[in-house]
Simulated scan of single mutants.
Amino acid sequence: MTTPQFIQLHQHDAAAVAQELLQGLSAPQAYTSPKYLYDALGSRLFEAITELPEYDLTRTEAQLMCLHSADMAQHLPKGACWVDLGAGNCEKAGRLLGPMQAARYVAVDISVDFVRQALGHLQHQHPGLPMVGLGTDFSGGLDLPEALALDPAQPRVLFYPGSSIGNFTPVQALGFLQSLHRACGRAMGSGLLIGVDLLKDPVELAAAYDDALGVTAAFDLNLLLHINRLVGSDFAVRDWRHLSRFNAAQSRVEMHLQARHVVTVRWPGGLRQFAADETIHTENACKWTVPDFAALLHATGFAKTHAWTDPAQRFAVFWAQS
């Protein structure tokens, strides 16, 4: 049986992380990157969110992949190297590697430790398939390293499920997708398979990001504890509430943490006083229409696009050929 290989490129820089967080917390509209929602507890809370009745994104995407897998196989190249972005437990790609006749699998996450166990399990299911775990932070754009020794003649399928593209503003998404287009390489048939949550009733969207059980609120509030560990601040969870709202002008759900009263937060060398009801913007979830996202893909260099949607037009999976 082939043994997975592991390449760790990203190195944690505590000073740079603290600087990034404090810059955002000191801005007129305080903000943080959504990547800081995903510490160990935050990741488990997000897994719980995907099981909630209000949040059907993950289930709808899985159903779409299953329903249209035969048609997808007609569009995607055989014998490709699959590059799974934000692979995590590798389950989503794992269901497609066989049907799509993948020839190599690269699981990309910020740390190879996040994918080590999953890759070992997946290797038993596909004993002859070469697999690599790549630890890198691709949030600012994807740059595949020479250490992967990718064959320039082998087509590549970049796989980015879960509608994580929604965390980017349209301008950010443009730059990020341009980096994915470059990473596809020049081999015939290469492209991007990406999941995109579609615009729907604002009432449904509000419920999806502020569920009745309060799991999303816990997910958002846990960010404060993570920040405390990263910068030495003294956020108290009881001083804040989770706030979710739909920004129609930007076609996005916004998650915020709102101060319940006047709050002073201190960290080594500084502090900030938040007024009552002032917020920290913690995440965007942009929602797209099929024509608008197809236009974005074309604008970033992808030549051909094909979209599969569920019958209710709630979610789309795009194949964008480079």
Score class of each variant (00 low, 15 high):
L158D: 00
G162H: 10
T169G: 10
L180K: 06
S190I: 02
P170A: 11
Q178L: 04
T169I: 09
A183N: 09
N167F: 00
F159D: 00
A183C: 04
S190Y: 01
F159M: 03
Y160E: 06
A149V: 02
S163A: 13
P145V: 07
F176H: 15
V171A: 06
F176Q: 14
G189A: 03
S179A: 11
R182I: 10
R186W: 00
V171S: 03
P170I: 12
F168P: 11
V171R: 05
L174N: 15
S163N: 11
E146Q: 01
G185F: 10
A153E: 15
Q154M: 03
L174C: 13
L144V: 08
F159L: 05
H181R: 15
I165D: 03
R186C: 15
G175K: 08
S163H: 14
R182K: 14
F159Q: 10
S190K: 07
G166A: 12
S179H: 13
S164T: 11
G166K: 07
F159R: 13
P161R: 06
R182T: 15
G166V: 01
S179D: 13
S163E: 13
G175E: 11
G189S: 12
L148A: 03
L180S: 09
V171Q: 11
L158E: 08
L144D: 13
L148T: 03
H181F: 11
L174G: 13
F168V: 00
A153W: 02
V157G: 06
N167E: 08
E146L: 04
S164C: 10
P155M: 08
L150S: 14
Q178C: 08
L180P: 01
G166E: 08
P155I: 10
P145D: 06
A173Q: 01
A183W: 06
G162W: 04
V157N: 00
S190Q: 02
L150Q: 14
G162D: 05
P155E: 09
S190R: 06
F176C: 10
A173L: 02
G162A: 07
R182L: 10
R156T: 02
F159W: 11
F176Y: 15
R186Y: 00
Q178S: 12
S179M: 11
A183R: 04
L148M: 11
Q172S: 14
P145I: 06
A149P: 00
R156H: 06
L158I: 07
G189E: 13
G162F: 05
P155L: 03
F176I: 14
P145C: 02
L177I: 15
S164M: 07
Q172D: 15
L177F: 12
E146P: 09
G166L: 05
G189N: 12
L177A: 09
S163K: 13
C184F: 06
M188I: 04
V157S: 03
L144R: 09
L148V: 00
H181N: 13
